[in-house]
Design a protein around this nucleic acid. Structure first.
Lengths: 192, 192
DNA sequence: AATACTTCTTGTCATATGGCAAGAAAAGAA
DNA sequence: TTCTTTTCTTGCCATATGACAAGAAGTATT
């Protein structure tokens, strides 16, 4: 039950000792086995997580039943379905452990209590959400302006751990290409 | 200086009379002429707006200097660069009036004061931000799963005003196609 | 080690969309 | 109105990427 991990999320720089003492003990350690779901499509996200170890993927399912990776998560990342968590609506995504994981979770009700009572906590939460928004927009613009190869190169540069640990097919849907194409792209890059 | 418009944004359902009285007078009416910028790349967004009338577009500029529409705004919409406004960083987008506009603006400092003092205001703000996130994700997934023609049809269905008032070129970059392609798509749809 | 299963690679061919350029149409300026 | 500029359409050809299928490589299971 070592909470050191959480002290690196809610750091001294942003939170007073008292605030840390109010926030950190509210998180509950939870383990997921490989392939287990952190959240399933259709359910309301009643909690969110920080990942201490392991890899996680979120994905949406299109009309033909193909899944599209929407994000990958690893050490230190927050895993949350923002719309479902805050709008209290059924999620459209699945979030699944790709490996065994250790996470720290907080439920919605506790979140609300902290959010409305601790200014630093809500500033921090807002910053995190806006950070996710920013990343999503970058990805979205990249889908328009960049070719598949450049998108893959950027992913390699910015999230090398993902590229190393996640299967080609799952990365391909994240980049908006087929696994066939991504395999060819990898080949080209290897011979550059 | 008729504030009826703002009472439809901060409705009775979500805000008490007292809260409305604290919030609404803080907004300042402002007009923009066609082509005027509400925000320019490189600057920090120190305010945001609600549009009472007119059309607005936000766009990013890629490496070759082409602009990519990231969003369109009309009556009742909030116009804000979330990352720049909240992270206090220079924006990467331009936001420009496509027609003469009437807006209501709130500056960051005033926003902060309201955000931290009125619970309903911050719940509302959070909801709005998450709504934007959700829309962005839908658009992003649509870029991967749908063909250009379907993306255009959806835009026609969901934002008919945009399709009617915004130029083909600007819609094209939003949909991630060339103006040439969009012109052909329109032709096909017309003959269906 | 042998079997089954999933993931990755590679070939062939198809197709959605891009690039470029020339007009046509529409909008704005004089 | 006339002139100018911008926006939109259309033709021709190029190309990035998809679809499908077969095999290879890797991983898991017994």
């Amino acid at each position: 039950m070592n909470q050191d991990f959480l002290y690196n999320i809610f750091t001294d720089k942003k939170f007073s000792k008292e605030e840390q003492a109010q926030i950190i003990p509210k998180f509950k350690r939870i383990e997921f086995s490989k392939n287990e779901f952190l959240l399933e499509e259709g359910k309301i996200a009643n909690r969110y997580f920080f990942i201490e170890s392991g890899f996680v993927r979120s994905y949406a399912t299109d009309l033909e039943g193909n899944d599209i990776s929407t994000n990958f998560y690893s050490f230190g990342d927050i895993v949350i379905d923002w719309p479902s968590f805050f709008l209290r609506t059924p999620t459209k995504e699945n979030i699944q452990a790709l490996t065994d994981c250790v996470c720290w979770q907080l439920d919605f009700e506790t979140f609300q209590q902290l959010f409305h009572s601790i200014e630093a906590f809500r500033e921090n939460g807002r910053t995190t959400l806006v950070g996710s928004y920013f990343e999503l927009k970058r990805h979205s613009i990249s889908m328009i302006t960049d070719h598949a190869k450049d998108r893959y190169k950027r992913l390699m540069r910015e999230k090398p751990l993902i590229v190393q640990h996640i299967s080609l097919k799952q990365i391909a849907t994240y980049l908006g290409v087929t696994d066939t194409s991504l395999s060819r792209i990898r080949k080209e890059i290897a011979s550059e």
